[in-house]
């Protein structure tokens, strides 16, 4: 590594002569070691999924959740240092609650991403702090109906002055990924953590930009991608954790919830089945392909 011995990597907020901030880059390394997290923005909702690597047999299966609820309509998952992820979530909850307190309406996914992007960026500026060792994926559903503000009691004029704009489309799914530098973009499909390369390749195959994938199918795809991105040879066992957010007419009624057990199990079954099918074909190919893991470490 070029930085070694130059001293430009020893403290936060210091640029190297070629314009890099090494502390931020090291934080990215921490992310690259974490279990894979993905998010898919479907036409009628958002799915979040994470590959939860089992670090000990003494941990209770299904406990120690990795995907958190930020507000009723929003969730977040992250790869990297888990405690940093917890702090991210707690700050995001504060931002969502304070937004409600000020504006009496739920925060939109893009606004939350903006607030959190600013927050993470601040942690690259000062020598007394270090950047977040996580990349977070935030998924949410902004209500498609014109939402009453919290506590509002009437519905107001139905149309015209002070009323609704005819034909205007409100809300919809939102998916953002926020990196240690504070950089955030909105995505159709987002992946981070150890298996992100594989996951991204799989996400690209889905043609999410067309806006055709349904939430139900998104759940199945997400499960499959986590299974594919998981490296059987190198890694320990893992658990799949998934949450979703649908529109008001969908299964979660605009709320961020865990994917119900039966649907999760079905998606896992399909994922395993698809993987077995793939194995038969890929066993031949695998030899003439360079090992996936090597590429990632670069």
């Amino acid at each position: 590594m070029t930085s070694i011995g130059t001293g430009y990597d020893l403290t936060n907020s210091v640029f190297s002569p070629d314009g890099r901030n090494f502390q931020v880059e090291y934080a990215v390394k921490a992310v690259e070691n974490g279990g894979t997290s993905i998010g898919i923005r479907c036409k009628d909702g958002v799915v979040l999924a994470v590959e939860k690597v089992i670090t000990s047999k003494l941990l209770k299966p299904g406990a120690n959740k990795r995907i958190a609820t930020i507000d009723r309509h929003m969730g977040a998952v992250s790869s990297g240092l888990i405690p940093d992820g917890r702090h991210f979530v707690s700050r995001a909850r504060e931002e969502a609650a304070s937004w409600r307190k000020v504006y009496k309406t739920p925060i939109t996914t893009s606004d939350l991403a903006n607030r959190m992007g600013g927050y993470l960026q601040a942690y690259t500026l000062y020598s007394s702090v270090r950047p977040f060792g996580i990349t977070a994926i935030v998924g949410g559903w902004d209500s498609e109906r014109e939402l009453p503000v919290d506590g509002q009691v009437g519905s107001g004029p139905s149309i015209g002055a002070g009323g609704k704009v005819e034909g205007k489309k409100y809300g919809g799914p939102g998916l953002y990924m926020i990196e240690p530098s504070g950089l955030y973009w909105g995505y159709y499909g987002a992946a981070t953590g150890k298996g992100r390369q594989t996951a991204k390749a799989e996400l690209e195959k889905l043609d999410l930009a067309a806006g055709k994938l349904s939430l139900e199918d998104g759940v199945k795809e997400a499960a499959k991608i986590i299974y594919i991105a998981h490296d059987d040879n190198k890694d320990k066992e893992f658990e799949l954790e998934m949450t979703w957010i649908s529109g008001l007419d969908g299964p979660t009624k605009g709320r961020h919830e865990e994917v119900p057990k039966d649907i999760l199990e079905e998606a896992e079954r399909l994922a395993k089945k698809a993987l077995e099918g793939d194995d038969d074909e890929e066993e031949i190919k695998e030899e003439d392909k360079p090992a996936e893991g090597d590429k990632m470490e670069e």
Binding site: R72, A97, R100, K104, G151, Q152, V153
Partner: peptide, 23 residues
Amino acid sequence: DVSDMQYLDRLLTSLDTEEAYGT
């Protein structure tokens, strides 16, 4: 009182949100 109702409604909204943090 309607304004007190609105205050309580917000209180219940935040209670519900915090309740949903749990898994």
